[in-house]
């Protein structure tokens, strides 16, 4: 069978001709805009497929992989009571961050489902309330670390694109800590907004007023006067050394 892509032809939106289009997820529609099979033009609607929602496999190798890690070793304990999600700090803010469901997806090796949550999978703030309350001592907080490792390993491209800004902010944060030995929230905020291409918003009326107020009562200057912690050089070396080791370990496990 000869497949060729015919790029010249203008075609309608993906799945547009499906009458009840609104009922079907974007990801579930498979349609090539321009496609010729054996010389026959089957572009657009002539090659549309709606993918089934049915899960057809439990991938246990994935479960075993998680179980081998230090942070995910208790994955077999989880019985899905939902105590972790109920006590979570993040869930009330993002509906899609659900530790209970993430653990279940990991147990069943449901990568298809996990993929939908790449952008929120990293949002655990590490308060450990879930681990303190879990009746089976699953340690969900650390399970979220296992989840982050998995997401990074199986979806490197998606992580690269969807979490680009997060990675950049993390870099700013790291540089700030290493360079100054302390966190400058104002600088972190401005740098992050710049990276996000939203620097303009920093000059809104509220922000201007705040800066004016802080300059007036002297707080703006006191921040500048804060020095580095005493003996920061040695701490810095230790942290840099740790980060270097971490990178070596990561490279070796890949």
């Amino acid at each position: 069978m000869a497949l060729e892509k015919n790029e010249s032809r203008p075609v309608a939106e993906k799945g547009e001709h499906i009458i009840a289009r609104h009922l079907i997820d974007d990801d579930s529609i498979k349609e090539e805009k321009n496609l010729v099979i054996d010389g026959v033009d089957v572009s657009g609607r002539w090659n549309t497929f709606i993918l089934s929602r049915v899960d057809s496999e439990f991938d246990r190798s994935f479960f075993n992989e998680i179980k081998e890690t230090v942070v995910g070793s208790r994955i077999n304990r989880c019985w899905q009571c939902g105590m972790c999600t109920a006590s979570c700090t993040v869930t009330p803010l993002y509906r899609r961050f659900n530790p209970r469901a993430f653990i279940y997806m990991m147990q069943l090796g449901n990568l298809k489902e996990l993929k939908k949550y790449i952008d929120v999978a990293w949002r655990c703030v590490g308060c450990y309330k879930c681990s303190q309350r879990c009746p089976k001592q699953v340690n969900p907080a650390e399970m979220m670390e296992a989840l982050a490792l998995v997401v990074k390993k199986y979806f490197p491209e998606e992580v690269e694109t969807k979490l680009k800004l997060d990675e950049e902010v993390k870099k700013i944060y790291e540089d700030m800590i290493l360079g100054h030995g302390r966190l400058d929230l104002a600088k972190l905020h401005t740098s992050s907004m710049q990276k996000a291409g939203r620097a303009k918003e920093l000059l809104g009326r509220i922000e201007r007023d705040a800066i004016f107020k802080m300059a007036k009562d002297g707080r703006a200057f006191s921040i500048l006067k804060l020095g580095k912690p005493r003996g920061w050089g040695r701490s810095k070396d230790a942290i840099e050394n740790y980060l270097k080791n971490l990178k070596t370990i990561e490279r070796n496990t890949d």
């Binding site: 929602r53 049915v54 899960d55 057809s56 496999e57 439990f58 899905q80 209970r100 469901a101 279940y104 997806m105 069943l108 449901n110 489902e113």
Partner: peptide, 12 residues
């Protein structure tokens, strides 16, 4: 149906 993920399954 996996009622926790709200998705249908057909497993061999």
């Amino acid at each position: 149906e996996d009622t926790l993920l709200r998705g249908p399954f057909e497993i061999q």
